[in-house]
Structures are given as C-alpha cells and as structure tokens.
C-alpha cells in the first residue's frame, strides 16, 4: 500500500518530461541572447588595447626597433596591421617612440644617416629627431615623434596607443 502512494501517475510523469524538455529549449534560446547583450560590456575591459611587445631584459639605453601587430578596424573589416616602435630605457623609465615621421609618415631610423649620430633620421625628406623624439629645427617635421603609452606587467613591456605631444 505504501509503495502505491509514491507512484507517479502517467499524467504527472508526462508533465515532468515536458517541463524538462521545455526548460532546456528555453535555456538554449535565452542564454545566447544574454551573452550577446553582455558581450560588449565584457569586451570593454580596456586592457585588450595594450599589446605585448618585448620583455624588460631586452631593453637597452640605445633605442631598438621592435615590430608587433595590432588589430585595426578599418570601416569594413578588421585586420592585423604591422606596427613598430623604437624603445629604450632612460634610467627607470621606458620610452617607446612611434617610428612614423611627423612630416608625411615615412618610417624613421635610429642613426639612419652616418652624418647624424644619436638622432632619428627620415630617409624620405631628411627629417631628423633627437633621441627623445623632439624634431630638429630646420628639417621638415614640425612636431616631435609620437610616444606610445607604456605598461610593464611581470617583466613584459606592453604598448598602447601612440599619443601626440
């Protein structure tokens, strides 16, 4: 007799089944919606803008060129674009200069010309910059080289965006 009381009736069994299946279906539909709704909020962590470029140990007082990739959104599509930076140590500070000449955008080189040691040199129109990126009067560029935002985490150097000075 006791056992009979605990038995699930056919009607109850079917309704449990329906509830279970329906629940899964609802979850399957709702969870992607929730995800998409929250996704932009999770993305905007800001940290993703910084790219690891090198380690602290590799830096010297002499500017060295490091190449890296950044994701660029260009109206219709996103792509990985090559970027470079001239990075050196100045005491405890790390300086990362953009190699883009502020005149018309060629790539400058450290000591790129034998006559101008300790300067950045632009091969296109002979623009020159001091080690700290300041343009040298009398050459075509009119403002200093841009500086990257620098962050150091666990001995690695991360670069953000180049900032105009």
């Amino acid at each position: 007799m006791e056992e009979k009381k605990h038995k699930v009736s056919r009607r109850q069994f079917l309704s449990y089944c329906l509830m279970g299946v329906g629940g899964f279906m609802a979850a399957g539909m709702i969870s992607p919606m929730v995800r998409f709704a929250l996704d932009p909020a999770l993305e905007a962590g800001g940290e993703s803008d910084f790219v690891q470029v090198t380690t602290l140990d590799d830096l010297t007082e002499e500017p060295q060129r490091f190449d890296f990739q950044v994701e660029v959104e260009d109206a219709w599509y996103t792509s990985d674009q090559p970027r470079s930076a001239w990075i050196y140590r100045e005491g405890d500070e790390i300086v990362a200069l953009s190699p883009t000449c502020t005149h018309l955008g060629c790539t400058v080189n450290w000591e790129g010309h034998d006559d101008h040691p300790n300067q950045f040199y632009c091969p296109c129109h002979h623009g020159r910059f001091e080690k700290d990126g300041v343009n040298i009067a009398g050459t075509p560029p009119t403002r200093p080289l841009d500086v990257y935002e620098v962050e150091v985490r666990d001995g690695s150097v991360y670069l953000g965006r180049p900032m105009q000075r």
Partner: peptide, 13 residues
Amino acid sequence: LVTEELERQFKGR
C-alpha cells in the same frame, strides 16, 4: 605584400 611594405616605409615620398 612587397608594395605595401614599401609604402609603409616611405609613405611620405
């Protein structure tokens, strides 16, 4: 690829 890279190096000229 080569042309793009040339352009990147010597953009201003």
